[in-house]
Write a protein that binds this DNA or RNA. Structure first.
Lengths: 236, 236
DNA sequence: CGACCCCTCGCTATTTTGGGGGAGGGTTAA
DNA sequence: TTAACCCTCCCCCAAAATAGCGAGGGGTCG
């Protein structure tokens, strides 16, 4: 059984936000989760979410502007890697109060979130929530985290597509070779190494670096890599 | 016989890195592997490994900084799922030379690696190595890969837990000046600009860049900035 | 007190990048 | 059929970053 491939299949069918919501709900069931949340914020502050929380909890969350104190949200804005809820700082008084309310609202005790950065400063958060003990959770994450990580990125791509993100003005997308190049640069390789890795000449490589710099409007290679990372154009 | 449960039991006993190393060696024997490697890199570039390779191969690997050309390492950094060594790209000249040396050092021809991403940018790699033909390897993986996958994650959790003890000393974080420097580098400024901005000499600035690079275990400035970003040490 | 880190600054090579040209052949969509 | 990319490769030369050394003063902690 390859859940992941099925999911990608099913996701490619979705063309409306309603179908996207349904897909999120199915995904929760298939992966046997307590809850699943997709939450996107674009560069203009516009938000969209598809989630499986109880409506009254969502309402209260929005009404109280809990995003301000939610350690998950706060933690993920500064993180580029998936983050375990357990490792977050829950010590603040507000955090504990929030935690209590969340528990009452049916949230499980275990969870992790995947921060996703899309083009033009778009930011999305995919959160997975479960109710079990630490051992079961460890086994769960080891089995399914990889899938869910990939799916998170598919989710975001799909959501952006459905929302019909308008044509990129200033930021043209990077070509595959440009992405390769920036990705390898982000790992610390120099031009000679990368050229060898990609099996192309260093001359060619320079063209990619320069065109990527140009497209991103970056002052130098370091800048280009930093921009590509913060805009989610590459993943390290 | 439930090897997996036994292993978990034995692992829960380990409280020191020595015991962890012994456990890794036992694990190799119990699962009848040629070699087993646990290798962890934390967010500040601190590394720890427990493995069964011959010491002189380990020494040579470190000395030659083979991690830079090792297709297993390079492949896994970009992978979220367990990866078969066979499917990696071994075509580069350096890769083949590396493969030859590895063979001489007693490594088997078959292997797979499990990339594991932990909190705060921690990254670990569990590699399983075996010497046999393709058929036997296929039967081996189908039988034991699931167990080894789980165990890999237990290994990582255990290693993190053990390292968490004040045994290994505190993880050095970036100094304020180092953060300033990396943050400005991430915006595309060059050393002259940054020195001016921070109102210090370029000489001083260089010390920050170099110490940051050193702390992060980064190969160059671009790498250091990319690491600082992905680990949430700086925000742009 | 010593050890260790932080901040500050300097020197001389050497290596790596960057700027600005050029070229040819491929695909894709207006 | 153009135009607009994309991939590939080459040249020369200047600018920037890095390696490998050095130095001193300040703070903290055991």
């Amino acid at each position: 059984m390859n859940r992941l491939v099925d999911m990608q299949d099913a996701l490619s069918q979705a063309t409306t936000l309603e179908e996207f919501q349904t897909f999120v709900e199915n995904l929760r069931d298939v992966y046997d989760l307590e809850h699943l949340v997709y939450h996107s914020v674009n560069s203009t502050g516009g938000q969209y979410a598809a989630l499986t929380y109880k409506p009254d909890w969502v309402e209260r969350y929005i009404e109280q502007d809990y995003a301000r104190i939610d350690p998950v949200v706060q933690g993920c804005y500064r993180q580029f890697q998936p983050i375990e809820w357990k490792t977050l700082d829950w010590s603040a008084k507000a955090s504990r109060a929030f935690l209590g309310e969340a528990g009452e609202a049916g949230l499980g005790n275990q969870g992790f979130s995947v921060p996703i950065r899309g083009p033009s400063g778009q930011f999305a958060l995919v959160s997975v929530n479960h109710k079990c003990n630490d051992e079961m959770w460890a086994s769960f994450t080891s089995e399914r985290a990889a899938d869910l990580l990939l799916i998170s990125h598919y989710l975001n791509e799909k959501a952006l597509q459905i929302e019909g993100n308008p044509h990129r003005g200033p930021t043209r997308s990077l070509s595959p070779r440009e992405k390769d190049t920036l990705t390898l640069l982000a790992t610390g390789a120099n031009r000679a190494n990368i050229a060898e890795t990609l099996k192309i000449s260093e001359s060619t490589l320079r063209v990619y670096i320069e065109s990527a710099r140009f497209k991103l409007g970056a002052a130098n290679t370091t800048h280009a890599v930093a921009m590509a990372l913060t805009h989610g154009l590459i993943v390290v």
